[in-house]
Simulated assay, not measured.
Amino acid sequence: MDWKRYERAIVEKFRREFPPPHFWVEPSGKDNYHFTGRHSGEKRQLDVAVFRRGADAPFLVVDAKRWRTPIDIGNVESFISFVDDVGAEIGVLITSSRFTKAAPRRAAGAPVSIHLEVVGAEEALAWDWLGLGRIIFPQDWAYHLHLGQALRSLEEGGSPDIISEALEEVPFEEWEAAVNFAIGQQLSEARLYLEWVATMHHDDGWRFNAARHLAEIGFLTESIRRRVIELEADPEARALITEL
């Protein structure tokens, strides 16, 4: 995971911790976000800025460091100065590595509230995939974790049954959105998943829709079609599958 993806994951983490409508979190993850320092008068880049509804200035700012070396007292002092300059009430310094023993003591003595947090690459990756779930289906946050887990497993070549398990409780609209995204981004893996669902899933609705997707992308073979028909009890559904 490179530093850009790491920072994007941290943005997603704070979007979850400070959800709308009472808060909003910048940046969007697409562009760098800057805020003019009240003492320095210079534009200061913010990895994450959390605003209360109706406020013009962030009350919480985050600096995320994808480092292999530990964060030391000098780094903490620099961050304290940064938080004071942008006028935030709280600062969160996040690293993928660790903090030296002196770093927490220096943070505790700061004139503003400073929190130190370690977010390893694996945790960050989970946040990043959760963010992808939000992008795919922004209407309902409840299922973003499931979508992210399924798509991460698909990209990593996970078995179709594991992917299917992650999506088991996801409503149809979200499932459709995830499948369409996967077809566009990971076609071969999406095909394997859909073939498994079409021939192995216990639910006839899942099997039919997987077969439909396979037909739409030109991968519904006659052997899969016959298997789906064999498993289908409804004559009308069997006729529809025959026509796919």
Rank of each mutant, 00 (worst) to 15 (best):
I71R: 01
E122T: 13
W175P: 00
K30P: 00
F82A: 00
A121M: 15
A210T: 11
R15D: 05
K43C: 00
R191N: 06
S159I: 07
E174G: 15
A177Y: 05
E168M: 11
L147G: 09
I73H: 03
A121K: 14
L151D: 01
V83L: 07
R191T: 15
E169I: 08
F18C: 06
T221Q: 08
V197K: 03
D2C: 09
D47E: 10
W196C: 02
D204K: 11
F23T: 07
R8N: 08
E7G: 06
E123F: 09
W196G: 04
L147K: 02
G91S: 05
E7S: 07
A108W: 12
E17D: 13
H115Y: 12
V179N: 00
A211W: 02
M1D: 09
I90F: 04
R106Y: 09
E156A: 12
W196A: 02
S223F: 09
R106M: 13
A88P: 05
I224P: 02
T221S: 15
D128G: 12
R105K: 14
H39K: 15
L93F: 03
E232V: 09
P58K: 05
F51S: 05
L93G: 01
G109A: 13
D72C: 10
K43V: 00
E176V: 15
D63K: 07
L240K: 10
E169M: 07
L151K: 04
A239I: 02
E12N: 10
A198E: 06
A88H: 00
K30R: 15
V48Y: 01
R66E: 07
I114S: 06
R53F: 14
W141P: 13
R225W: 13
F82N: 00
E77Q: 14
E77I: 11
S40I: 02
D161E: 14
A110K: 03
Q185A: 12
Q185W: 10
D203Y: 09
R44C: 00
K43D: 07
K4G: 12
I229N: 07
E156P: 01
